[in-house]
Amino acid sequence: MARSGQPAQEGGRNPYLLASLHRGLEVLDCFATRNSWGLADLASHLGQSKPTIFRVLHTLEQFGYITKEAASGRYVPGLRLHALGSAAVRHEQLRWQALPPLQDLAESTGETVHVGILHDGVIVTVQIVEGTRAVRMHSSVGKRSPAHASALGKVLMAYLPDAEVDAVVAAHGLTRFTARTITTPEALRETLHRVRLDGYAQDEEEIEVGLRCLSAPITDHAGRPTAALAISAPASRMDPERVTALIPQVKATALRISRMLGSPSMVAA
């Protein structure tokens, strides 16, 4: 029988499983049940040799995930592991606290609304409420979108240092999806500057012809834009007059979520 937390395998060994990474994750899992471990106790608990577990512990220590206490010689969670845990808690808090405001906005507009974060240079949807219209934008939690072509991405990149924006572009490029997609660094910089001034961003059929989005930043307890809210609809329902009417609603909903997360103010308000 597989150890608790071990991925189930059918028909023998999983050919895609990295054994060394698997051992490292097993070691990290142990710190969820006990705050500190000695080398011998941990090796015995996992049924592995002490040299094998020592190498795993040494690697994790080098990257800051665990720390060895000088006085006791025992291993405890490191700052990097705490940071990962805190990030996970923040994202879950964002996901569920954003839900009631998203529901209200979806109900009042009839359009699909969603929240996303910038992760590894792409936008990841973390919460969504679909609209009530027969023709509407469909999405799902976990969906990944190109940052340069999405309203969510433009909002979040607008508040990054130039060097970080350049790193995103270097890693992912500026792929053309439609005739309206931004494909040059110069055009992207100009757009991000305008987003900072306006406090909102638009996707004007830049990922998919016929789909438009409007987005505003969500700020954390320190007032930093760490997520974004967007409303998406067919282009036929997003003419300039309606976009103008939706901007204050989208900003107000983003501000409401920010306040719920403890933000002192909306940076772009």
Rank of each mutant, 00 (worst) to 15 (best):
P217C: 07
R212K: 09
E208Q: 13
D198Q: 15
L229S: 01
L261P: 07
A163T: 13
V124M: 08
L60N: 04
Q62C: 02
R189F: 03
K154R: 07
T175A: 10
G173N: 07
P146M: 01
S36G: 03
M1Y: 06
P100F: 12
S140R: 14
K154M: 02
R259D: 05
H58V: 05
R90D: 08
F31N: 02
A32S: 12
P51S: 06
A187F: 02
E186R: 10
E130M: 10
I128W: 09
L246M: 02
I231Q: 01
G131M: 02
V155K: 03
L42M: 09
R90S: 14
S232E: 07
V195M: 03
Y16K: 13
S265Y: 13
R196V: 02
P7Q: 11
E206I: 03
L255Y: 02
S4A: 14
S49C: 02
G64S: 14
E164D: 15
G121E: 07
A151V: 03
R95Y: 13
P101I: 09
G12M: 09
V124N: 05
V27I: 12
S72D: 14
L246S: 00
A269K: 04
L229T: 00
P161R: 04
A227I: 00
R237C: 06
R176C: 12
V113I: 09
V141G: 06
I257W: 02
N14S: 14
V165R: 04
E206N: 03
I182K: 04
V27T: 07
C213W: 05
G12A: 07
M137Q: 10
A179Q: 06
K68D: 00
Q9C: 08
A88E: 14
T175E: 00
R23D: 15
I66P: 01
A227M: 01
A2R: 12
E107H: 12
S49V: 01
T59V: 13
E164F: 00
T33G: 14
R13F: 13
A106Q: 03
V56T: 15
G116V: 06
H138L: 05
T191D: 12
M260S: 13
E26F: 02
G78Y: 09
I53L: 13
F54P: 00
S263T: 05
S145E: 15
S44Q: 05
V135Y: 00
R34V: 01
G210V: 02
G131K: 04
G210F: 00
R23H: 11
A70L: 12
T253V: 10
V56D: 09
H82N: 12
L25Q: 15
G121T: 09
D239Q: 04
P240F: 11
A32G: 08
G110H: 07
R242D: 08
L105V: 09
A163C: 05
A87R: 15
A254G: 14
S36K: 11
V122H: 09
A216K: 10
S150H: 08
H172W: 03
A171C: 09
